[in-house]
Simulated assay, not measured.
Amino acid sequence: MDEVGALVRAAAGGDAAAWESLVARFSGLVWSVARGHGLGAAEAEEVFQITWFRFAEHIGRIRSPEQAGAWLATTARNESRKAVRVGSRVALTSDLDTLVPGVDDLSPEQVMLDAEDAELDRRRDRELVQALEELPGRCRELLRMLLASPPPSYAEVSQALGIPVGSIGPTRARCLSQLRELLVERGITGGAAQS
């Protein structure tokens, strides 16, 4: 019998130790999926909590308990996408120091140069996100997971995406190569997609 499946069934039956074991085993995976979507710490924590709440809600109805990692990764991905959509709100403030701390200490020229640099960084980031979205689904999901902070283990990635552990590194290399090609086509070069 699969160990994860046995833990899920035990937790569904009320075994607190089994539940704690599942949380310990898959917390890094859930956290990395949330952070991989570019969420801040507070939003990622909320996704983390919601994902585990949904798991507890459905634990007795999961069709393939041995695939709990994939279930959790999918749920975290869906909740992260919701959080990204909701998080695109703008916070209004009239306090210039809140928007740009220390701006009074800079010359007007330095403020303009910093603003230009920031715009170039935002453009590069937008191009990177767009290029990532153009990758085939497997590459997109793999890179998102591996770029998360903290990154999940290869075992967690393997279970979540159904990729053998030994194939993750070579697949990652191919995906990064495809991403670099897309960025070069967009005129973005340098460290944007370095492995």
Rank of each mutant, 00 (worst) to 15 (best):
A83T: 04
A83P: 10
A83K: 11
A83H: 03
A83L: 03
V84L: 14
V84R: 15
V84K: 12
V84S: 01
R85H: 04
R85V: 01
R85E: 09
V86R: 09
V86P: 06
V86L: 03
G87Q: 01
G87H: 06
G87P: 05
G87I: 02
G87R: 08
G87M: 04
G87F: 06
G87K: 07
G87L: 01
S88H: 13
S88N: 06
S88A: 10
R89E: 02
R89N: 03
R89I: 02
V90G: 04
V90E: 04
V90S: 05
A91M: 08
A91C: 01
A91Y: 12
A91H: 12
A91P: 00
L92K: 09
L92V: 13
T93Y: 02
T93C: 05
T93V: 06
T93F: 02
S94N: 00
S94F: 02
D95C: 00
D95V: 14
D95R: 07
D95S: 02
L96N: 01
L96V: 03
L96K: 00
L96S: 02
L96D: 07
L96M: 03
D97L: 03
D97G: 02
D97P: 09
D97N: 14
T98Y: 04
T98W: 04
T98D: 11
T98S: 13
V100P: 15
V100K: 09
V100Q: 12
V100S: 08
P101D: 00
P101N: 08
P101I: 02
P101R: 14
P101K: 13
G102A: 03
G102H: 10
G102K: 15
G102N: 07
G102P: 13
G102C: 04
V103G: 10
V103T: 12
V103L: 15
V103P: 13
V103N: 11
D104N: 11
D104F: 12
D104C: 10
D104Y: 14
D104E: 11
D105Y: 08
D105N: 11
D105L: 13
D105I: 09
D105H: 14
L106Y: 12
L106F: 12
L106R: 15
L106G: 07
L106P: 14
S107V: 05
S107N: 10
S107G: 14
P108L: 09
P108W: 03
P108K: 11
P108E: 10
P108M: 07
E109Y: 05
E109T: 09
Q110H: 11
Q110I: 06
V111E: 11
V111L: 15
V111C: 04
V111K: 06
V111R: 15
V111H: 08
M112G: 05
M112S: 11
M112P: 05
M112H: 05
M112V: 08
L113Q: 15
L113G: 06
L113N: 13
L113R: 14
D114V: 01
D114H: 06
D114T: 05
D114R: 07
D114K: 05
A115Y: 07
A115N: 08
A115P: 14
E116V: 08
